[in-house]
Design a protein around this nucleic acid. Structure first.
Length: 874
RNA sequence: GCCGGCAUGGCGAAAUGGUAGACGCAACGGACUUAAAAUCCGUUGGUGGGUGACCACCGUGUGGGUUCGAGUCCCACUGCCGGUACCA
């Protein structure tokens, strides 16, 4: 394809016929933006060759710049989307211009609830809805001129994609974590002769009974996001927790690595902290308490074993297995009632509504192993079955929750920690000194912890332990629109289907209505369910997170039918000698824990099994800030403050939108939208356009006679090189807003000069091109028609980033600010090479300085080279 | 409650410990126009003074501190935004 040879011709704009709704365009972006988008597309301008391709240049370094791919909702693009996308596009284009092979792809996280809910309502197959939404999103994204390699587009609902999601699941299913903390193939356990039960209990994907949100009125299982305050979002019916056979992923086996290996990543510290807190490592000890009379053991976890002497009662989670065994006949009715009541409550109710502590005495007692005291055993919902051992020793004197509970039920409170001066010991939870604790007395808390741990271990009744808040990942959903599990059930046992049967497509259902039982909708496809005469398929589907756990890998080799990603492609794009493979990952903070933790988990499993070459997926992470509405509120349909990017593109063009999204402020910051701000960027681009083009009487744009092939004067040249330098540095720092300001300064200077040197303008366009690629491309090609000898063929997107000339930046003279006692009083302009002594002398002799030092003694003269002189006098 | 982030003109913002407010918006004045829009030129933190070029003082949420010098560093506090919530 030949580029840019025909001279431009634009239709005149008839002002009189154009109404206010269709305001007159200040430059014909509506013509050239679609033109360049089509040109880039047909020229495959942003196709990225892979290792092995004929046009692949292995000598270039790689740069993998990634956006969090969107869920293609029916609402279309939101102005929040192009914020991150523009940032990565600028980086990607800039890196290309700097000689990198850039991988900058886009795709669709397209499984999910809304399409299924729409199907239930209208009967439209989710595939149809999804296709339409993807088409709309694609059109919208293409209208913004992003330099994606569309050949690498991925879609999580595409069988060619989810074949590999299912394949990775089978890897998880067929792996376990060894003593080395790494994933290994399950075949190793088989070789050791372990039983089927033992093997199943160690798989990274395993079956467990877990509670789901069951809504009897709606006759369906609900996702967490469909439950609001314990009621269904639709209809407001009560939702119960009901245990159901579920698939779980053993992410907890990676908890420590998920914490430790954050260290090598260039992520915001706040996000690392969020992940660490989510994983929630806590060091403590497990202690066994004997049940008096019964003899059963109750194991508790505590971070404060040093307070063991202060344990005056115990609490079991209501669901705790031992409750049935130890409860006395007398207390049984109360305990039963309490257990039933808590079972009905959702997690939300248990926490948010239970401000007031509740609980019931079981009638049983336990023996405190340190002093053989009999202490009562209670059940209470403030002890959670899912954390630790589901049982605690209560030390009311030094734990807020136990303190509250003990006060309410009038249980004894015994001091065992002496706080520092000025603190009340009741409810004191910090470090202090052990008291009333026999052999621990006088020890500071950390020492007491060590001492008691040793003692417990010696007696064989406890040991140091580490606990994590992180739970295993509930991986199954009772939904239609998700990846089916590549598993079957036969004689009550599960088994994987052969890899050759992947992808396992979901059955083509026509009836999407809930089954009315907790059975997943796939159960309706009776033919599909029957795998063989004796085996049936697993009916659950995977959660939406599944597809997004590995999509970045698929981008490296999106069309590979043999492997989830080709080895060579993976090594090249994900390699680079750092822990993480993706060089820059931009997305919202809402994924700080779940998506980013799940993806890291899968990646580590794949790494351990030798399928990928780095231990971490994402080296550098940046969170873009939320864009608020013009009213400063979060954008939402109900507030009516949503801005549609299509409207902005229509009125001001894609380049204006791109520029505005970047000029708003720092990328990471939360900031409000302003349509006037868009206009500012639009005017900037229009002014730049008019540097090259002038409008005649008929409203036709012609090449400007002010643009001439003459050398730039010294000041303009200095400004140009300053701009090249600053914009390049700012892009590297992701400070796009200040880069744009600097380009505006250059633009303003050019506007004000009578003659505009064409070489200056061409360089300016190169610097502008990552930000406003359409206008840059258009003006570049227009200038080529007038100065063919100055403008080589090809896209401006393909040119080399201009190098700035440091010599052009050298100032002949510098302005030195004169301060007296830190206050600016005057400034002097001196030749650059003026020695320090001379500048100081000039400063002291300065009339204004004298005025303010008059009558004072000069104590000190501070000279900051090239900047200022501060005279200290009193 | 706990954790994190933010606080600068009328507004969005900018400032390696060194001239606070670059750049943009809005506003105001002027040029062009029959007129308006657009465009171009200029003014624009506050208070006070001067006919004027200018000058002084005050000013980065509040109060202290470090420093020759603080929007920037330290301590204490206030307000707003986000996350999280009985994790023993």
């Amino acid at each position: 394809m030949r580029i840019g040879s025909p001279a431009p011709s634009y239709a005149p704009f008839f002002r009189s016929t154009i109404m206010s709704t269709e305001r007159r365009k200040q430059f014909p972006f509506d013509e050239f933006e679609p033109k360049w988008q089509a040109t880039w597309e047909s020229a495959k301008a942003f196709r990225t060759p892979n290792p092995g391709d004929a046009d692949f240049d292995a000598s270039k370094p790689k740069y993998f710049v990634l956006d969090m791919f969107p869920y293609p909702s029916g609402n279309g693009l939101h102005v929040g989307h192009p914020e991150g996308y523009t940032a990565t596009d600028i980086i990607g284009r800039y890196k290309r211009m700097n000689g990198f092979n850039v991988l900058h792809p886009m795709g669709w996280d397209a499984f999910g609830l809304p399409a299924e809910q729409y199907a239930i309502k209208t009967g439209t197959h989710p595939r149809v809805t999804t296709e339409a939404n993807v088409a709309n999103f694609t059109k919208q994204l293409k209208s913004l001129g992003f330099a994606y390699d569309w050949d690498r587009e991925v879609n999580t609902t595409d069988p060619g994609y989810f074949k590999w999601t299912q394949w990775i699941f089978l890897k998880l299913y067929n792996s376990y974590v060894g003593d080395d903390g790494k994933a290994h193939p399950i075949s190793e356990l088989e070789a050791q002769g372990l039983s089927r039960e033992e093997i199943d209990s160690r798989r990274l994907a395993y079956v467990s009974e877990a509670p789901v949100n069951w809504c009897p009125q709606l006759g369906t299982v609900l996702a967490n996001e469909e439950v609001v305050d314990g009621k269904s979002e639709v209809g407001g019916f009560p939702v119960e927790r009901r245990p159901l056979r579920q698939w779980m992923l053993r992410i907890t086996a990676f908890a420590q690595r998920l914490i430790d290996e954050l260290d090598g990543l260039d992520w915001p510290e706040s996000i690392k902290l969020l992940q660490r807190n989510w994983i929630g490592r806590s060091e403590g000890a497990e202690v066994d308490f004997k049940v008096a009379d019964g003899g059963q053991l109750i194991r508790v976890f505590t971070t404060r074993p040093d307070t063991l002497f202060g344990a005056t009662y115990m609490v079991l989670a209501p669901e705790h297995m031992l409750v049935d065994q130890i409860v006395t006949e007398e207390q049984l009715p109360l305990v039963e009632e309490y257990r039933e009541k808590t079972a009905r409550k959702s997690d939300l109710e248990r926490t948010e509504l239970a401000k007031e502590k509740s609980g019931v005495f079981t009638g049983a007692y336990a023996i405190n192993p340190v002093n053989n005291e009999r202490i009562p055993i209670w059940i209470a919902d403030y002890v959670l079955m899912g954390y630790g051992t589901g049982a605690i020793m209560a030390v009311p004197a030094h734990d807020e929750r136990d303190f509250e509970f003990a006060k309410k039920f009038e249980l004894p409170i015994l001091q065992v920690v002496q706080p520092p001066e000025g603190h009340d010991w009741q409810g004191f939870t910090d470090n202090g000194t052990a008291v009333n604790s026999q052999f621990l007395d006088g020890l500071p808390t950390p020492d007491a912890k060590r001492r008691i741990a040793a003692w417990l271990e010696e007696k064989g009744i406890g040991k140091k332990t580490i606990n994590f808040k992180l739970r295993d990942w509930l991986f199954s959903r009772q939904r239609y629109w998700g990846e089916p599990f590549p598993l079957i059930w036969e004689n009550g046992q599960h088994a994987a289907i052969p890899e050759s049967e992947l992808p396992l497509l979901p059955p083509d259902l026509e009836d999407f209505k809930p089954t009315g039982t907790p059975e997943p909708p796939l159960s309706k496809a009776t033919d599909w369910v029957q795998y063989s005469a004796t085996a049936t398929r697993e009916l659950n589907t995977m959660p939406q997170w599944a597809g997004s756990c590995w999509y970045y890998l698929r981008y490296c080799d999106a069309k590979n039918t043999e492997r989830f990603v080709g080895e060579e492609a993976e090594k090249y794009w994900m390699g680079g000698g750092k822990p993480g493979g993706v060089d820059l990952y931009v997305g919202g903070t809402e994924h700080a824990v779940l998506h980013l933790l799940y993806a890291r988990f899968w990646h580590k499993v794949l790494f351990d099994l030798g399928f990928v070459s780095t231990p971490e997926p994402f080296q550098r992470l940046v969170n873009q800030g939320l864009i608020m509405g013009e009213d400063g509120q979060k954008m939402s349909k109900s507030r009516g403050n949503v801005v549609n990017p299509d409207d902005v593109v229509n009125d001001y063009g894609a380049d204006s939108l791109r520029l505005y999204e970047m000029a708003m402020g720092p990328l990471e910051q939360v900031k409000p939208w302003s349509m006037n701000g868009v206009v500012g960027q639009y005017r900037f681009l229009a002014r730049l356009w008019r540097l090259v083009m002038v409008e005649d009487q008929e409203g036709e744009w012609n090449f400007s006679p002010q643009l001439q092939d003459v050398p730039a004067d010294k000041n303009l040249n200095k400004l140009l090189h300053k701009t090249i330098k600053k914009v390049g540095e700012d892009i590297e720092k992701l400070s796009f807003n200040t880069a744009i300001s600097e380009m505006m300064v250059l633009n303003n200077a050019l506007t004000q000069s009578e003659i505009r040197p064409v070489a200056t303008l061409l360089t300016f366009l190169k610097v502008l091109s990552p930000f406003a690629p359409h206008l840059a491309e258009e003006l570049y090609s227009i200038i080529r028609t007038q100065f063919p000898q100055l403008v080589p063929g090809g896209f401006v997107a393909d040119v080399t980033w201009p190098a700035y000339d440091p010599t052009a930046l050298i100032e002949d003279e510098i302005e030195v600010v004169l301060q007296v006692n830190g206050k600016r009083r005057d400034s002097i302009t001196v030749p650059i090479a003026t020695p320090k002594e001379e500048i100081e002398a000039l400063a002291l002799a300065n009339a204004r300085v004298k005025e303010f030092t008059n009558g004072l003694t000069v104590r000190k003269v501070i000279y900051v080279p090239g900047k200022l002189v501060n005279i200290v006098a009193n």
